[in-house]
Lab assay of single mutants.
Amino acid sequence: DTFTFTLDGIEVRLHGASEELIKTIEELLKRDIRWEELEKWIREWEK
Score class of each variant (00 low, 15 high):
Leu21Phe: 14
Ala17Glu: 02
Leu28Gly: 05
Asp1Tyr: 13
Trp41Asn: 04
Lys30Arg: 12
Thr24Arg: 14
Thr2Pro: 12
Ile22Thr: 05
Ile25Ala: 01
Asp8Met: 04
Lys23Met: 13
Arg13Pro: 03
Asp32Ile: 06
Leu14Cys: 03
Leu14Glu: 00
Leu21Met: 15
Arg13Gln: 15
Gly16Asp: 10
Lys30Phe: 06
Ile25Met: 02
Ile33Met: 08
Glu27Ser: 09
Glu39Leu: 10
Thr4Tyr: 10
Thr6Gly: 02
Lys40His: 12
Thr6Arg: 04
Ser18Pro: 10
Gly16Pro: 11
Glu11His: 06
Arg13Ala: 14
Phe3Tyr: 15
Glu11Trp: 05
Ala17Arg: 02
Ile10Asn: 10
Arg31Tyr: 11
Glu27Asn: 08
Glu20Arg: 05
Gly9Thr: 03
Glu36Pro: 14
Phe5Ala: 01
Phe5Trp: 02
Phe5Thr: 01
Val12Ala: 02
Ile25Leu: 08
Arg13Phe: 10
Arg43Glu: 12
Arg43Gly: 07
Glu11Val: 11
Gly16Phe: 09
His15Phe: 10
Ala17Ser: 05
Glu26Trp: 06
Lys30Gly: 06
Glu37Gln: 11
Leu38Ile: 05
Lys23Asn: 12
Trp45Tyr: 13
Lys47Asp: 14
His15Val: 13
Leu38Ser: 00
Gly9Met: 04
Glu44Met: 02
Gly9Ile: 02
Gly16His: 11
Phe3Ile: 06
Lys23Ser: 12
Gly9Pro: 00
Glu36Ala: 13
Asp8Cys: 04
Leu38Gly: 01
Phe3Thr: 02
Ile22Trp: 03
Glu46Asp: 14
Leu21Ile: 14
Arg34Gln: 08
His15Leu: 09
Glu37Val: 09
Leu28Tyr: 06
Arg43Pro: 03
Glu11Asp: 06
Leu14Arg: 00
Gly9Trp: 05
Ile42Thr: 01
Leu28Asp: 01
Arg43Cys: 10
Trp45Pro: 01
Trp35Lys: 04
Ile33Leu: 08
Ile42Ser: 01
Ile25Gly: 00
His15Tyr: 13
Lys30Gln: 11
Glu27Gly: 10
Arg34Glu: 07
Ile10Asp: 02
Glu11Ala: 05
Glu19Lys: 14
Arg31Pro: 04
Lys40Phe: 10
Asp32Tyr: 05
Glu37Lys: 05
Thr24Val: 12
Phe3Ala: 02
Ile22Pro: 00
Glu26Lys: 15
Gly9Cys: 03
Leu28Ala: 11
Trp41Tyr: 14
Ala17Gln: 03
Glu36Leu: 12
Thr2Gly: 08
Leu29Lys: 02
Arg43Ile: 10
Glu19Leu: 14
Lys47Pro: 15
Thr4Glu: 12
Thr6Asn: 09
Asp8Ala: 04
Ile10Gly: 02
Thr4Gly: 07
Ile42Arg: 01
Arg31Cys: 04
Leu7Phe: 13
Ile33Ala: 07
Asp32Glu: 13
Ile25Tyr: 01
Glu39Val: 10
Ile42Phe: 06
Val12Met: 07
Lys30Pro: 02
Glu26Ala: 07
Asp8Leu: 05
Trp45Arg: 01
Glu44Asn: 05
Ile25Glu: 00
Thr24Leu: 15
Glu11Phe: 05
Glu19Val: 15
Gly16Val: 05
Glu26Ile: 13
Glu44Thr: 02
Arg31Lys: 14
Lys23Ala: 14
Gly16Trp: 07
Glu39Ile: 11
Lys40Cys: 05
Leu21Ser: 04
Lys47Ile: 15
Ile10Tyr: 12
Ile10Met: 09
Ile42Cys: 03
Lys30Tyr: 07
Ser18Cys: 04
Asp8Arg: 01
Ala17Cys: 08
Leu21Ala: 09
Phe3His: 03
Glu37Ala: 09
Trp41Asp: 02
Lys30His: 10
Ile33Gln: 04
Val12Leu: 06
Gly16Arg: 05
Lys47Thr: 14
Leu14Ile: 14
Trp35Gln: 03
Ile10Cys: 13
Arg43Ala: 13
Asp1Glu: 12
Thr2Ser: 08
Arg34Trp: 06
Asp1Met: 11
Lys47Tyr: 14
Leu29Ser: 03
Glu36Ser: 12
Thr4Met: 09
